[in-house]
């Protein structure tokens, strides 16, 4: 919500301004960030969105796979990401906007890797 891009997207009722590139974000709850921790199963470096699948083990030991929509390779590639930024097996903590419908999915905002590296995909990290 804090980025110029996001404000522009939300403010643009007219396509002659800055439009959203692909689809509406209304399916995500952008008022409640959620954090999930798990293991990267697959990082799809594809258009129109990257998708990160993360295996999350619940308190009952059951593993559920979350599907996280992210920004596109062109956008991320200009901001220091590559197709190898996330690798299968990486332990990861991801901050997301969850899907409103309760499915195991959301919009990928930023993440912290096991070595402490933080990577921002969308928006700006919260102030320390």
């Amino acid at each position: 919500m804090k980025t110029i891009l996001m404000r522009s997207i939300l403010a643009a009722a007219l396509v002659i301004g800055v439009a959203q590139a692909h689809h509406s974000f209304t399916m995500f709850n952008n008022t409640a960030e959620q954090t999930i921790t798990g293991t990267v199963k697959e990082f799809q470096w594809t258009n129109p969105h990257t998708f990160t699948f993360v295996d999350v083990t619940g308190a009952d030991g059951k593993v559920e796979t979350w599907g996280l929509e992210g920004m596109s390779p062109n956008y991320l590639g200009r901001r220091g990401w590559t197709k190898r930024t996330l690798q299968p097996g990486d332990k990861i903590t991801v901050t997301i906007y969850p899907l409103k419908d309760g499915l195991k999915g959301g919009m990928f905002l930023r993440c912290k890797l096991a070595d402490g590296t933080e990577k921002v995909m969308f928006g700006t990290p919260p102030r320390q």
Partner: peptide, 28 residues
Amino acid sequence: WTTAEYICQENNRNSVDESGKAGINLTR
């Protein structure tokens, strides 16, 4: 900068149907 490839159909998991209902496919 150079211009990147953007094939929207490559891995499009979003959709909207004729009634206007939006969807997202999370199947891996």
